[in-house]
Computed example of a mutant assay.
Amino acid sequence: MTTTEAGTSPSPALLQVLDGTVDLHCHSGPSPFPRRLDHVEASHDGARIGMRAILVKSHHHNTAMDVLAMGPQLAQAPTPVYGGVAMNSEVGGMNPSAVAVAVLMGGRCVWGPTVSAGQHLLAHQHDDGFPNNTGNLYEEEVSVFDSTGAVSQQADLVTRLVSDAGILLTGGHLDGESMSAFFATAARNGVKRLLVHHPDYIINASETAIEEMLGHGAFIEHELSMYHPDVAAPHWPIEQLVDWIHKIGPERTVLDSDLGQVGNPLPVDAYLLIVQQLLDHGIKAEDIRQMTCRNTAFLLGLEETNR
């Protein structure tokens, strides 16, 4: 039986709960941020708990191209890996051309601006625990709004391309107001798969903004890394995650790792530790599977519904 880094063997019951997990937030490499493992290694890590699929994320480039370039190695790897593109300045910002390329190359996700979002740039002026680039990437702010304050034509077209492809759109690290406007446009244009990342980290979305985004059909993601004791920040107590699950409900909650960085635990070790803690705090196994398997499979386009 595989053991965790802490040296303890996961129980058969825990492995059964996690079998079929889809991780929508894996930060394997390559990346300008130092990474602990590459996409092939992430695939093998996922097999330890029978992961169904992994979505690999870069803040800086189109990871669908990584998946194609690593095709021969990934073909021999146990867990399917998918990619996408984030709307940061490194790919031209809110760039429909970058989205079109990602879709053409098999991308399954378009992330809203993350490291280029104004909210991120503001938060990163402080010690927020976010990793640093290995060099100056000349980051520029990317907004979903034009000079008049309306959602820009580029952002509108991005959502139309996502809708046509039937893939996932996330709000990245946009502030709540910007993300809600972006998602409202996306919903009008027919996007069915919407995801809000860590609403209480960097984004700091208000309850009103969260309710608006839920109204547009969005799911709310929480990252296991933020509750892991071996991750430097934000190092939140498990009770905070339990409260979020009760507040939003498992039908619209997603649990992902947000791991792969140098110095942090492996993604699977976070699932083993944090999911066991959730079980110990009374979250039902069926609800955990809803959040880790069914909701995530729907968002990645592996299933037509999350039921």
Rank of each mutant, 00 (worst) to 15 (best):
S97I: 14
G29T: 04
T208P: 06
R52I: 03
V115S: 00
K284Q: 13
A6K: 06
H216E: 11
S152G: 13
G118Y: 00
M291V: 09
E207D: 15
A98H: 01
D146I: 00
G166H: 11
P250V: 12
T3M: 14
A75R: 12
H124I: 09
S97T: 15
M213V: 09
Y201C: 12
R48I: 01
S97C: 12
Q240C: 11
D280I: 04
S58I: 04
T8D: 12
A205R: 11
L14A: 05
L55Y: 06
E41K: 14
T63I: 09
Q154K: 06
I202R: 01
P72T: 06
Q76K: 14
H44K: 12
I202C: 02
V254Y: 04
Q119F: 01
P234N: 09
V103A: 10
P267Q: 02
T134W: 14
G135C: 10
G20F: 08
R307Q: 10
T185C: 13
Q277D: 07
L121R: 14
H216G: 01
C293N: 15
G215Y: 13
G217H: 07
H246Y: 07
A75K: 12
V56D: 02
I220R: 13
V158E: 00
T21G: 09
E304S: 07
F298I: 05
S31I: 10
Y271I: 15
T79Y: 07
G217W: 01
L68T: 06
D200L: 03
T79W: 01
V242A: 05
L278Q: 00
Q119Y: 02
A218S: 06
G20T: 03
G149L: 08
E303G: 04
P80L: 06
E239F: 07
M105C: 11
L157P: 01
